[in-house]
Design a protein around this nucleic acid. Structure first.
Lengths: 225, 225
DNA sequence: CGCCTCTTTGATAAAAGTCAATCAGGGTGG
DNA sequence: CCACCCTGATTGACTTTTATCAAAGAGGCG
C-alpha cells in the first residue's frame, strides 16, 4: 500500500512486504518549507505520499528556475545522485508528506529482489523523459501551447490519482507557473483570461474547470507533455 | 581503456577487466544515420567511443526537438528505459562508433561488482541534471546567454576530452543549434556575427575560435550549463 | 476595517521570428 | 579544370510574440 505509493509500477506481490523495509521513514513538510536544499547531502530519494512539491534550481545570483511540480506517487531527488549532493531545492506547495528511500538500502535489498534495480531505473528514465518533454515544451512551443500542455499534463496526472481531470485546484501561483513555463506571470494571467474567454476553461483564482478538453489538446499540439 | 570510455567515473581497477564483458559489441554509425529510432526496442544503452551524435524527440506532426549533442565518453539512450522503448532518435553528426551496454548484463554483473549500480545511477542522475540545466537555459536565459552557455559547455566538454577549449569545429548546423536552443537559425547566425563583431569569438562557418572566454562567461551569466 | 499578497488588465517596449534576398563553399558533371 | 548547382549561412526589412512597467482589483487574514 505504502510501497505502491513510493515504488508503484509492476512489482510482484510477494516482494511488497520486503519493500516496506525501504520506506521506514516518513517526513512531513509544511507548506513553503524545504524537504532539502541545494548542496544538502543526498543519500536518499523521496516519494510523495500526499501534498505537492516543487523542485527548483538556483544559480549563484539567486535566480530560480522551477524544474518540476510533483504530485503524490512521484519521486523527488533523482538529480542529486551524481556527487550525492542535491543540486536543487525541494519545497512543499502545501502541507505534504514524503517517504524516504535510502539508496544503500535499495542496493542491499536488490540482491534478493531482482526486479528492484530495473524498477529504479524506470523511475529515473521517466524523469529523464519528462525533463526532455519539458525541453521540447520550452524550445518548440509558443506560450499558449505551453500553458495548454501544462494544464493537460496536470489534469492527466490528477486523473491517474483518481481525482477529477476536469476540475482541480492549482497549488502554485501564476508566478511559479510562469517561471516553470519560461513566461512571465502577466503572460500566464492573460492566457488564463484568454482561454476562459474562448470557452476552453473556467478559471477563478486557482480553481480550474476544464470545459473543452479537446480544444485544449488541439491548441497544445500534443498528447500531453 | 575501453571501459573507461563507456563507464568512466571512479571504478576500482580490479573490476575493469570484468567490465569489459559489458561492452562486447561496438557499432559504427555513419554520418546522418540513426543508432536507433523512436519506438525501437531498448534493452541497451550506448557509450560513444568516437564521433558525435544528437538525440531528438519527434511529435506526431513530425516536428523535431533536439535534446542533446553527445560527445565521446557520454551515454546515450537513458530515456528509453521506462517501457524499454526508445522515445527519441539518435543520429550521428559524423561517422561515429558506440559501444553497446546491455542492461541485463549490468544487472547480472552487479551481483559481483557492488559499485556498478550506483555507477549507472550516477550516469542517469547526470543526464537528469543536464536536462534540468537545459530547462533552465530555455526557461530563464535570453538568446545571447543561451548561445554563450552553449559554446562554453561545448568548450568545457571538449577540454575534458583533451581537445583545445578555445578552438573547435561545430559538428552541427545553425539550424540544429537553433532547434536545440529554442531559437531560429537566423537568430543563431546573427548572434555568432555579433559575438564575432564584439571580439568574443572568431567564427568561420563551423570553425569556432574563442577569443574572450571570460566575457563569454559573464554574458552567459553562468558557470557552464 | 485595512493591509498584504496575488491577480488581472492596459499601454508600451524589446526580443526574437518570419520572409526574402544574397552570399559562400563544396561537390559534381560537362 | 571550371562552371554550375545545391545546401547552408548571412544579412536586412518587417511582424509577431512576449516582456516590462504601471495601475487597479480581489481575497484572505490579523
Amino acid at each position: 500500500m505504502l510501497s505502491e505509493i513510493c515504488l508503484p509500477v509492476g512489482m510482484p506481490k510477494v516482494d511488497v512486504s520486503r519493500l516496506d523495509d525501504l520506506v521506514k521513514t516518513r517526513v512531513r513538510v509544511a507548506r513553503g518549507k524545504a524537504l532539502f536544499h541545494l548542496g544538502d547531502k543526498a543519500d536518499s530519494i523521496y516519494g510523495i505520499r500526499f501534498g505537492s512539491m516543487k523542485t527548483q534550481l538556483e544559480d549563484s545570483a539567486g535566480q530560480v528556475q522551477i524544474t518540476g511540480f510533483l504530485l503524490p506517487g512521484e519521486i523527488i531527488g533523482l538529480d542529486g545522485l551524481v556527487e550525492n549532493r542535491h543540486v536543487s531545492h525541494a519545497i512543499a506547495l502545501e502541507d505534504s508528506e514524503v517517504c524516504v528511500i535510502n539508496l544503500d538500502d535499495i542496493d542491499t535489498l536488490s540482491r534478493t529482489i531482482p526486479g528492484l534495480q530495473p524498477q529504479l531505473r524506470r523511475l529515473m528514465s521517466k524523469e529523464i523523459k519528462r525533463s526532455h518533454q519539458m525541453v521540447r515544451s520550452l524550445g518548440a512551443l509558443r506560450s499558449e501551447q505551453r500553458l495548454a500542455a501544462f494544464l493537460l499534463n496536470l489534469s492527466h496526472r490528477l486523473a491517474t490519482l483518481g481525482y477529477s481531470p476536469n476540475e482541480f485546484l492549482l497549488r502554485m501561483s501564476r508566478e511559479e507557473i510562469g517561471n516553470y513555463l519560461g513566461l512571465t506571470l502577466e503572460t500566464v494571467s492573460r492566457l488564463f483570461s484568454r482561454f476562459s474567454r474562448d470557452g476552453l476553461i473556467r478559471v477563478q483564482q486557482r480553481e480550474i474547470l476544464i470545459i473543452d478538453m479537446q480544444a485544449l489538446r488541439e491548441l497544445s499540439g500534443t498528447d500531453c507533455g
